[in-house]
Nucleic acid binder design. Structure first.
Lengths: 201, 201
DNA sequence: CTTTCGATGGCATTGAGTGACATCACTATA
DNA sequence: TATAGTGATGTCACTCAATGCCATCGAAAG
């Protein structure tokens, strides 16, 4: 049996997760992570652009999955269909493993620094999606708006999925959220383009 | 006329802007800013939580303006009306000074670090708006979705406003974007997808 | 004049992140 | 086998952001 040596990134990630749980993100130095991983700080920074990135390695794969889903969508699909395809891919990416998603979120949510990084990952995802939609013939500003809306729906649904105790699947919650957004934006009782004034009564 | 001595924060901000333009954000150290402002680095960090914050001081006022607009909206207003009110307040906040908005964006856009900070400011804005909507009787997940949608519309419209050469007002662009979002989300072809949905006939 | 208090300066320290160079393990090839 | 090459890692030195602690200065109040 050949002895399997985990690669450096995996070791760093595992060590980092351990320490972030034992202590916290702020109270863990890169030196600590490196020591537990049996490597050096310098090597850490060869694998991760900065300390935060050790928690955000999956984002590239998520983006790839989402992008692929949009690309293989049927030719007759309109914006909303492409959005649904993207959302489904993202849902599939997270599967039904709520436990680890919750754990990770508890770390990210407690540190502004990490929340910032999460947001820029989502923004990048949105920009990528917008570009993919554009490639499918959807023009601006529709592509950007559709992408932003999709990511917003996912974000809200994902948070709800993590928070709620019922066993609704992420897929269900995403669907429901999209329906709610449609209801909110679609049903208005003011004529297009017109505004309300502070109490017109 | 008494000679007006600008307060420390103003001096730091002015010095920082100058240097960010002359060189760049990355190539400007806090020591540089402090020196030009005639103060010390230590004092800089008494006025700003970190180096980035020197560029994000207006966000508190923007949030206040938006919040106020939502609060004074007429009692019969629904989610979409409150959103429109919030958007109008944000539009008014920026007025029609595209020049300085463009300058600031050129700095922020060129530095990932600053883009992160901008995103978290917008996320905070969104969360605040969601809470205000909730206080108006709009429940979850509608409040969060409406808030996210509103901020997304604003973000896309704002970017368009800065980019385009025509002289459409920000107000017009925001209105148009909201209409586009409605069109995108509202019109769909469900039959191609397997969504759970109140029986389509 | 002295006391008080808020703002600032000076100093030392920690920790993130980078550049330059050395070293080690492994592989291809003469 | 020997050797040269290549990629990953280690070592060292350095810059800079950020913070804690204490000293100092100046204006206002007594």
């Amino acid at each position: 049996m050949s002895r399997w040596k985990p690669n450096a990134e995996g070791r760093f990630r595992a060590a980092a997760m351990e320490l972030f749980i034992e202590r916290s993100y702020e109270q863990t130095t890169v030196a600590d992570i490196a020591e537990r991983a049996g490597l050096t700080p310098r090597t850490f920074f060869r694998h991760f652009a900065d300390k935060r990135e050790v928690l955000f390695n999956g984002s590239a794969r998520l983006q790839e999955a989402m992008l692929n889903a949009v690309r293989i969508a049927p030719a007759h699909a309109v914006a909303i269909d492409a959005i649904v395809a993207a959302l489904e891919a993202m849902v599939a990416f997270f599967g039904d493993d709520r436990a680890s998603a919750r754990l990770r979120r508890s770390i990210v949510a407690s540190t502004p620094e990490l929340r910032e990084r999460e947001l820029i990952k989502l923004a990048t995802l949105s920009a990528t999606l917008a570009e993919a939609l554009h490639a499918r013939g959807i023009n601006e500003p529709d592509a950007s708006l559709a992408a932003e809306a999709a990511i917003a729906v996912f974000r809200v649904a994902f948070a709800q999925w993590l928070d709620e105790s019922e066993m609704r699947s992420l897929d269900e919650i995403v669907s429901a959220s999209l329906d709610r957004l449609r209801a909110i934006v679609g049903n208005n009782r003011w004529d297009t383009h017109r505004r309300i004034k502070p109490d017109d009564k």
